[in-house]
Design a protein around this nucleic acid. Structure first.
Lengths: 131, 131
DNA sequence: CCTTGATCCTCCAGTAACTGGAGATTGTAA
DNA sequence: TTACAATCTCCAGTTACTGGAGGATCAAGG
């Protein structure tokens, strides 16, 4: 299949597929006589893997590592497990940060009763040095 | 005061202060004879405002809008309130997304019992097309 | 007076992970 | 044949900084 089809099949943009090849997540696809990239079903699977990992928030370099493990079936999956654990911790930290932001934003919004900027709790709250 | 001091006072890097000037969040600072930027107390307040808004996750262009409201004391703060509400919604969406990721990551990690990559629930889970 | 170290200046490149577009081919269907 | 879709390569732009090179300036100590 050509690039458009694998892109559609995996919910990826054509340019992004080419980009993944460029940065080495996908191996350089063999080409047709006219130079078009040709993909096999295994490539779809690999691209699904990549998209899914990215969708879970793994960085490209982490995806690269996960693919390495995936490519070596006999390899101990310890590395993958560590990556996942660390990533999970990062995600949880982000959640906490966002929840703190959320509380502050709610506080700010409550302080605004719709007058002029001078009286506005949002503007005033942002101007205050303390959190 | 010079740039180093305002940077220290607000927890901002010197380069970042210059950057904020470049993109117009801070007005071009007057210069000393030798060309160094000179700041007043009001600039510290403004920079605090900017840092605080950025810390709450507002984008630079949103901060620009918030500053506009702040700079026009008689202006209705409706725009600021809208920005804050929309941003709050975005933050809440992000939280939900991250919580979904978290659940999936926990599920993946549970599926790994430390064997080879072939048996690994993490690798296997990523390879499956369904969420 | 001279040197040293801190601070400042401008300009520029790099980061992450794509995304979009220009300009040129190629493939295909009516 | 003619149109139109899909592909190719190359390159610039996005966000919000961050860091560094190379060079000027300033204050303090000897």
């Amino acid at each position: 299949m050509q690039i458009g089809k694998i892109a559609r099949a995996t919910g990826t943009k054509v340019n992004t597929v080419r980009y993944y090849e460029e940065i080495g997540l996908l191996k350089p696809a063999p080409r047709s006589q006219s130079g078009r990239r040709i993909y096999a079903d295994a490539d779809v699977e690999r691209l699904v893997f990549i998209r899914r990992a990215r969708g879970l928030g793994f960085s490209v370099s982490e995806v690269r590592s996960l693919l390495e493990v995936s490519d070596a079936p006999n390899r101990d999956c310890k590395d993958a497990a560590n990556l996942a654990r660390n990533h999970l911790r990062r995600v949880e930290e982000q959640i906490e940060q966002l929840q703190a932001m959320r509380q502050e934003l709610i506080g700010l919004a409550r302080a605004c009763d719709g007058g002029t900027a001078t009286d506005c709790g949002i503007i005033g709250g942002l101007a205050r040095k303390s959190a």
